[in-house]
Protein backbone atom coordinates (compact mmCIF):
# COMPACT_ATOMS: atom_id res chain seq x y z
CA UNK A 1 0.00 0.00 0.00
CA UNK A 2 1.19 3.50 -0.69
CA UNK A 3 0.77 6.90 0.89
CA UNK A 4 -2.37 8.78 -0.12
CA UNK A 5 -4.16 12.03 0.64
CA UNK A 6 -6.68 11.56 3.39
CA UNK A 7 -9.16 13.65 5.30
CA UNK A 8 -8.70 13.90 9.06
CA UNK A 9 -11.10 15.08 11.72
CA UNK A 10 -10.24 16.16 15.25
CA UNK A 11 -12.74 14.69 17.69
CA UNK A 12 -11.83 17.27 20.30
CA UNK A 13 -12.43 20.53 18.45
CA UNK A 14 -14.07 19.29 15.24
CA UNK A 15 -11.37 20.76 13.01
CA UNK A 16 -11.07 18.94 9.69
CA UNK A 17 -8.02 18.94 7.49
CA UNK A 18 -6.33 17.08 4.66
CA UNK A 19 -3.11 15.15 5.18
CA UNK A 20 -1.13 12.24 3.89
CA UNK A 21 -1.77 8.77 5.23
CA UNK A 22 0.79 6.05 4.69
CA UNK A 23 -0.25 2.70 6.18
CA UNK A 24 3.38 1.57 6.14
CA UNK A 25 4.63 4.60 8.05
CA UNK A 26 2.07 5.37 10.71
CA UNK A 27 2.90 8.69 12.33
CA UNK A 28 1.58 10.38 15.44
CA UNK A 29 -1.44 12.56 14.64
CA UNK A 30 -1.95 15.89 16.30
CA UNK A 31 -4.68 18.37 15.52
CA UNK A 32 -3.03 21.51 14.15
CA UNK A 33 -5.67 23.64 15.87
CA UNK A 34 -6.08 22.25 19.40
CA UNK A 35 -3.06 19.85 19.65
CA UNK A 36 -5.31 16.93 20.62
CA UNK A 37 -4.32 13.42 19.48
CA UNK A 38 -7.93 12.32 19.01
CA UNK A 39 -7.63 12.72 15.27
CA UNK A 40 -9.68 10.35 13.22
CA UNK A 41 -8.84 9.33 9.68
CA UNK A 42 -12.14 9.55 7.90
CA UNK A 43 -13.08 6.72 5.57
CA UNK A 44 -12.64 7.76 1.95
CA UNK A 45 -16.36 7.70 1.10
CA UNK A 46 -17.25 9.85 4.05
CA UNK A 47 -14.42 12.26 3.37
CA UNK A 48 -15.53 12.67 -0.27
CA UNK A 49 -19.13 13.33 0.81
CA UNK A 50 -17.94 15.99 3.25
CA UNK A 51 -15.89 17.70 0.58
Amino acid sequence: MTARDTHFKCLNCGHEYDGVYDPDKVTERTCPQCRSNSVRRLPEKKATAKK
Binding site: L11, N12, E28, S36, N37, S38, V39, R40
Partner: peptide, 8 residues
Protein backbone atom coordinates in the same frame (compact mmCIF):
# COMPACT_ATOMS: atom_id res chain seq x y z
CA UNK B 1 -17.31 8.88 17.71
CA UNK B 2 -16.08 11.76 19.88
CA UNK B 3 -17.03 9.83 22.99
CA UNK B 4 -13.93 7.73 22.45
CA UNK B 5 -10.71 9.70 22.81
CA UNK B 6 -7.04 9.04 22.20
CA UNK B 7 -4.18 11.00 23.74
CA UNK B 8 -0.44 10.44 23.80
Amino acid sequence: DDRLRLEW
